[in-house]
């Protein structure tokens, strides 16, 4: 069952690759958690939203902008887009059954996927990311600059968000709106706009995840579907209502899946995805709150 050849150097490389994967999962999982905390629903369109904004980045770069010039523009578009989506199609259904919200997000996913096909065509294309693919020597282990870059960008983003939530008035209001709607209204917080802001933030997180992963996966309309499943697994593992859980879950899953895929011969590359599904199933059945979650999950 286990693969024979093992070197510490390769193990370190696998860990590095796992951390990089985990960073991407964590970003998208954090987006899912932010929306789940405020809207109680899972946004099945998170992946397509991320891919869509990545396509916008691609178009901007095709029109002469460098990646880092396009980056803030894409984030701004993603932010506004997320807010717009919440205010137009989520707001009418957000007080109804969760399943309705889910199906609306599914409709959104279909719409965005088709739209990407119409505007940019199906099939994949290369995406020139901001980091070079050469490797540098880290303590005797060759690690790709791109992996480091992705992890650093994700880390900075998550840190900024954490600071925002903890130390700003708006961040506090966002947290309050997600925790206790009525009390938030009583102190004058406009809960509706807080929800919209959350969707905007989630869209930004998704955009970053998409732009980080596109150089590796090649950009096509279906690029994020598989990552979305990994993000679901990371969010469930960490606890659907826990931002810390999303980050920790993402990293654990990224490293775990990479190691299992490399060292458990039966799984290999092919069965990594079913392993992620297994994680979701096991966590939801055995410990539905995940590692850090707190919300009560209704059992039959």
């Amino acid at each position: 069952m286990l693969v024979a050849a093992f070197t510490w150097t390769e193990f370190a490389q696998q860990i590095a690759a796992g951390v990089r994967q985990g960073a991407v999962f964590a970003g998208l999982a954090l987006a899912l958690v932010i929306i789940y905390r405020s809207t109680r629903a899972i946004n099945f369109a998170q992946g397509e939203m991320a891919t869509f904004t990545t396509f916008i980045c691609w178009s901007l770069m095709n029109n002469g902008l460098s990646f880092w010039a396009a980056f803030p523009i894409v984030l701004a578009i993603a932010f506004v887009g997320g807010i717009a989506i919440e205010r137009t199609i989520i707001r009418p259904v957000e007080n109804g059954p969760v399943i309705t919200i889910v199906i609306v997000t599914l409709g959104l996913a279909l719409l965005l996927n088709g739209l990407m096909s119409v505007i940019w065509g199906g099939g994949n294309r290369p995406f020139r990311g901001p980091f070079s693919t050469r490797t540098i020597d880290v303590g005797g282990v060759p690690i790709s600059v791109q992996d480091i870059g992705i992890v650093v960008v994700s880390f900075v983003l998550v840190a900024l968000l954490a600071l925002f939530f903890r130390f700003t008035k708006l961040g506090l209001a966002l947290r309050a709106a997600a925790l206790n709607r009525e009390s938030s209204e009583l102190v004058g917080v406009r809960v509706g706009w807080m929800l919209a802001f959350g969707w905007g933030l989630a869209a930004v997180l998704g955009a970053v995840a998409g732009m980080m992963v596109a150089p590796i996966l090649f950009l096509d309309p279906n690029m994020m579907q598989v990552i979305l499943l990994y993000a679901f697994a990371a969010a469930v593992l960490g606890g659907l209502d826990s931002p810390i859980g999303a980050v920790v879950g993402g990293l654990l899953l990224g490293v775990g899946i990479t190691l299992v895929g490399r060292y458990v011969g039966f799984v290999g590359d092919v069965l990594k995805l079913p392993v992620a599904l297994l994680v979701i199933l096991l966590v939801l059945v055995v410990k539905p709150n995940g590692l850090f979650g707190r919300v009560a999950v209704r059992r039959v």
Binding site: G107, L108, A109, L110, L111, L112, N113, G114, L115, M116, S117, V118, G121, G122, P221
Partner: peptide, 10 residues
Amino acid sequence: RPGMPDVIFG
């Protein structure tokens, strides 16, 4: 690029 039906359906 047959994405339009999905757009409409969505």
